[in-house]
Simulated assay, not measured.
Amino acid sequence: MIPAPPIPRGPLAHVNPVAKLGAALLIAFPLILTIDVVSAAVALLLEIPLLLAAGVDARTFWRRTAPVWIAAPLAAVTIALYGEPSGTVHFEWLLVRVSDGSLALAAATCLRILALALPGVVLFATVDPTDLADGLAQRVRLPARFVLGALGGMRLVGLLFDDWRELELARRARGVADTGRVRRVLGMAFALVVLALRRGATLATSMEARGFGSDRARTWARRSPWGAREWMLLAIGLGISLTAVAVAVATGAWNFILGPS
């Protein structure tokens, strides 16, 4: 018997998912307009209490955010080696040129990726897809047909992993998985795509037969609550953005990437 997942606990664990999405977007918006160390560092520092209040345990946090911690340093190394040089050049070999400018840009890129990705990953770690769909339809007023279709697709994502495991076990049982690993992976991927298309068509037909494609106004089994906690989370996200921008502008570090070069 598979143990039930732990119940998320924390001040933000049960906040409306739409508010979490809005807060993540508010934090990300100014960071995509600039590449500088100050704004990214300030935003990342102010995000720490928000991450702690998300109700995610340490194991889940590191497992969910591991790709971010890997991608940020790798991007920084690439920028440091191949970024546009400026200032003093410390090392040069073929296409590699490490300078003061490329190092500063690498540090800003690393912090920027962390500040952009961590809030979204951590805040959505405790989001149930059904709650998110309820919020998008009831609060953001997105078309119910689109929301329910996306929800059905998200619910099938977990089945893809089970299908892949079953395909692998079936091929091993037939003795065709011992050699030709690349060919085996390509064959399994093709089979998985075919299976996903068939299952998607079946799901679409069944949902259409049950009236999910109707243009009439729908009723919802569960209400999507919205109150002071949601407004407070949005205010926190806006405050983090404004503070990061203000500090960057005040220190002269603001580097508007859409401005004239």
Rank of each mutant, 00 (worst) to 15 (best):
M1S: 10
I2L: 13
I2N: 10
P3W: 02
P5A: 10
P6V: 08
P6K: 13
G10I: 10
H14K: 07
N16T: 11
N16L: 03
V18Y: 02
V18F: 11
V18D: 01
L21S: 07
A24N: 03
A28M: 13
L33H: 02
T34N: 12
V37R: 01
S39F: 03
S39V: 00
A41P: 06
A41F: 12
V42P: 01
V42C: 03
A43P: 01
A43F: 02
L46M: 14
E47C: 15
I48V: 15
L50H: 01
L51V: 11
A53T: 08
A54E: 04
V56M: 10
A58V: 14
A58P: 01
T60W: 01
R63D: 00
A66I: 06
V68I: 15
W69I: 10
I70V: 15
I70S: 04
I70E: 03
A72M: 05
P73M: 12
A75S: 14
E84R: 14
E84T: 13
S86P: 00
W93Q: 08
L94S: 12
L95H: 09
L95P: 11
R97S: 14
S99L: 03
D100H: 06
D100V: 02
G101T: 04
L105C: 02
A106W: 05
A106N: 05
A107K: 00
T109H: 00
C110F: 09
L111D: 05
A115R: 00
A115H: 01
P119D: 13
P119G: 10
V121W: 02
V122M: 06
F124K: 04
V127G: 07
T130G: 04
L132A: 12
A133R: 02
D134A: 08
G135H: 01
Q138M: 10
P143W: 12
P143S: 11
A144W: 02
A144M: 01
R145E: 10
R145A: 11
L148S: 09
G149M: 13
G149T: 14
G149L: 10
A150L: 14
G152A: 15
G153L: 10
G153H: 04
G158P: 09
F161P: 00
W164Q: 06
W164H: 08
E166P: 00
L167D: 11
L167A: 12
L169I: 11
R174T: 09
R174D: 08
G175M: 04
A177T: 01
D178Y: 05
T179N: 12
G180K: 00
R181P: 00
R184P: 00
V185D: 03
G187A: 07
L192D: 10
L192N: 12
L195T: 11
L195F: 07
R198M: 12
G200R: 06
T202F: 03
A204F: 04
T205W: 08
S206F: 03
M207E: 12
A209N: 07
G211S: 07
G213Q: 04
G213W: 03
S214I: 05
R216N: 09
R216E: 14
A217Q: 13
R218W: 05
R223C: 08
R223P: 00
R223H: 14
S224F: 11
W226M: 07
G227Y: 09
E230Q: 14
E230R: 14
E230N: 13
E230A: 13
L233R: 09
L233T: 10
A235N: 07
I236W: 13
L238V: 13
L242W: 07
L242Y: 05
A246I: 00
V247W: 05
A248E: 04
T251W: 06
G252N: 08
G259P: 05
P260G: 10
